[in-house]
Simulated assay, not measured.
Amino acid sequence: MFRNAVITGACGGLGQALARQLIDSGAHVALVGLNLSALQALAALAPERTRIYTPDVSNAAAMQAMASEWLAQHGTPDLVIANAGVAGGFETADATDLAVMRRMLEINLLGVATTFQPFLQAMLDRQQAGALVGVASIAGWRGMPGNGAYCASKAGLIAYLQSLRAELRPTRLSVHTISPGYLRTALTAGNSFAMPGLMEPEAAARALLQGVAGGREHIVLPRRIGWLSRALSLLPARWHDRILLGQPRKPRAGQAGATPIPGLQSATEMSSPNASPKP
């Protein structure tokens, strides 16, 4: 299948399941994430075929340094999976949540481009088949109350992947958009609402890799959640909104059940005259 892979967000959930399956298949795998102990446990499965990297995926210079080292030591990948992502509730009326939106866009959207960019020219120069995979979400198909930052980041990602796919049509590289529904991961552990079609990450990883290897450009995990989302989209917008408004909302940063957002700065820090932007 794939012999040389790079995976961001490899610490847990879908990313960890993807890494394990690729390592088990004999591939060389660059493990990119922030949880060092989790990455070390994965690397121990095949020390000679893996390497650990812990950059901020939104930091272009750090990602380029990571890519340069991997290319020099293991060669050009035939699979790059931009899986790193964060989630959390968002309330526009609360100024502190503006920092949440900024950071979510940096990781979920910009982080995909900074993952692909350092490898793209080498993959093109190799003139062989290769795959660029972006993990979006069905949340990018339609905005949901209390989830504006996450939905916006994933909708933007879907559009970015569409653009990149069109650009690379004349080449041997393919671009794949993954739209998971609910996976049993840390990002969904704090959800208090119904999660239809909840899928185990190991099953999702198998379906993803099989779909990419089979040339599917759009992969929904599981497929039935995509059908449900499309069925709801046929309703008048007011009815659809009323259904969504009746559901509990995603926990916001600082609330019980919220997942941490690495590198998150408060709105107070961002508005300080001495504040400096992240690199």
Rank of each mutant, 00 (worst) to 15 (best):
Gln121Trp: 10
Gly246Phe: 04
Trp141Phe: 01
Thr8Asp: 06
Trp239Met: 15
Leu168Met: 07
Ala207Val: 09
Ala149Gln: 05
Asp241Ile: 00
Leu45Gly: 07
Gly89Cys: 10
Ala267Leu: 01
Leu164Thr: 04
Leu105Ser: 02
Leu221Cys: 11
Gly140Phe: 13
Gly12Asp: 15
Pro262Asp: 14
Leu157Phe: 10
Gly26Met: 01
Ser192Met: 04
His28Tyr: 02
Trp141Gly: 00
Arg224Asn: 13
Ile107Ala: 06
Gly75Arg: 12
Ser192Val: 09
Asn191Met: 13
Pro260Ala: 15
Gly211Gln: 07
Lys154Cys: 03
Arg126Pro: 00
Pro260Trp: 09
Leu168Thr: 06
Ala41Glu: 14
Ser266Leu: 12
Trp227Phe: 08
Ala44Gly: 03
Gln21Cys: 11
Ile261Glu: 14
Ser192Pro: 00
Met63Lys: 08
Leu183Glu: 07
Trp239Thr: 14
Leu235Gly: 12
Leu232Ile: 11
Gly89Asn: 13
Arg51Thr: 14
Gly75Trp: 00
Thr50Ser: 13
Met101Asn: 09
Asp94Ile: 03
Arg49Leu: 08
Ala95Tyr: 03
Gly130Met: 10
Ala152Val: 04
Gly88Pro: 08
Asn274Ser: 11
Ile219Ser: 07
Leu14Lys: 13
Ala203Ile: 11
Glu91Ile: 01
Leu22Gln: 09
Gly111Arg: 02
Pro279Ser: 12
Ser25Asp: 14
Ala131Met: 04
Gly246Cys: 04
Ala253Met: 09
Thr96Ile: 05
His240Ser: 05
Leu14Gly: 09
Glu48Pro: 05
Arg249His: 01
Ala44Ser: 11
Met199Ala: 11
Met1Trp: 03
Ala166Trp: 04
Thr92Ala: 15
Leu14Arg: 12
Thr259Cys: 12
His28Cys: 04
Gly143Ala: 14
Arg216Gln: 15
Arg252His: 05
Phe116His: 09
Gly211Asn: 07
Ala72Ser: 15
Gln73Asp: 14
Arg216Pro: 06
Cys11Ser: 15
Pro277Thr: 02
Asn35Arg: 10
Ala99Trp: 10
Phe119Cys: 00
Ser37Tyr: 07
Leu161Thr: 05
Ala253Trp: 08
Thr114Cys: 04
Gly181Lys: 08
Ala62Phe: 01
Glu69Asp: 15
Arg216His: 14
Leu228Ser: 08
Thr177Gly: 06
Ala10Met: 06
Met101Tyr: 08
Ile219Gly: 09
Ala65Cys: 06
Gly263Gln: 14
Arg216Ala: 15
Ser58Pro: 12
Gly190Asn: 10
Gln127Val: 00
Ser25Lys: 05
Leu42Met: 07
Phe90Asn: 08
Gln247Thr: 11
Ala189Ile: 06
Ala19Cys: 14
Gln64Phe: 03
Gly143Ser: 11
His176Val: 13
Leu173Gln: 00
Ile261Leu: 15
Ile52Asp: 13
Ala131Arg: 06
Leu264Tyr: 05
Val135Pro: 03
Ala99Pro: 14
Pro201Met: 08
Gly140Asn: 08
Thr185Phe: 09
Ala30Gly: 08
Leu98His: 06
Val86Leu: 11
Gly148His: 01
Asp241Gln: 12
Arg3Lys: 12
Ala256Met: 10
Tyr182Trp: 12
Trp70Met: 02
Val6Lys: 01
Glu200Asp: 13
Val86Ser: 10
